[in-house]
Amino acid sequence: MMNIADVIFEQTYRFDELTIDLDQLSRDLGYEFDDLPEPFAGYLEQVVDDCRHLTDICGTYRLMDCVHSGDGARTVMAGNVEFKVGKTIANELLRAEKLAVFVCTAGKTISEKSAVFLKGDDPVLGYVYDIMGSAITEAVGDEIQQVISREVSLLGEKITNRYSPGYCHWNVADQHKLFSLFPAAPCGVTLTASALMHPVKSISGVIGIGKNVVFRHYQCDLCNMPNCVYRGK
């Protein structure tokens, strides 16, 4: 039998396969969806139509054994790689037996398109592409999370929420270790020396797996970022 920990799952998604919250996007633009004035309504429609042509939306994950050793209160081990996740996230992952490490991206096309319009003569359209890119990235994260959840539930296991380097005292530089667990450029995503992912619309992180883990919504009172994307999720 193939060892599950050695399989890397990678999947591209079509825009229509994702759940995008257009109400939230409208609110990011400053309006309720039903009251979206021109040119925003037209721009949003145009961007949605255009996104249907995207072919580089992608999510990938790898399952690793999760070992709790050393400074267990602040770190977790994915195989023999140590993540200094900090107290808060370590606590959420305490009962995890496995970790899914993931990378998700809305792809190069939308990240570049947004940049072109933002720098060019239609920054508003560029901004609509920008927030759509962020929404797509998170929607891929949601999909990957569901795939993992379905997969491990067959073994009677559960998952935690997803946690990313750069949040809750987990240093963003740990992304270098996270990327070392994948072949070069998972889903086409690369990492700069300063731990910035290319394309820009990408996220990375871990999900805890085990019979006794609990899925908890983010504990936002521990963080002071008022308009964080994960607030209340």
Binding site: D28, G30, V124, Y127
Partner: peptide, 12 residues
């Protein structure tokens, strides 16, 4: 009271 798109419109 206003968001990024309105600022971009004003800047334009």
């Amino acid at each position: 009271k206003v968001f990024v798109p309105q600022v971009l419109m004003s800047a334009k």
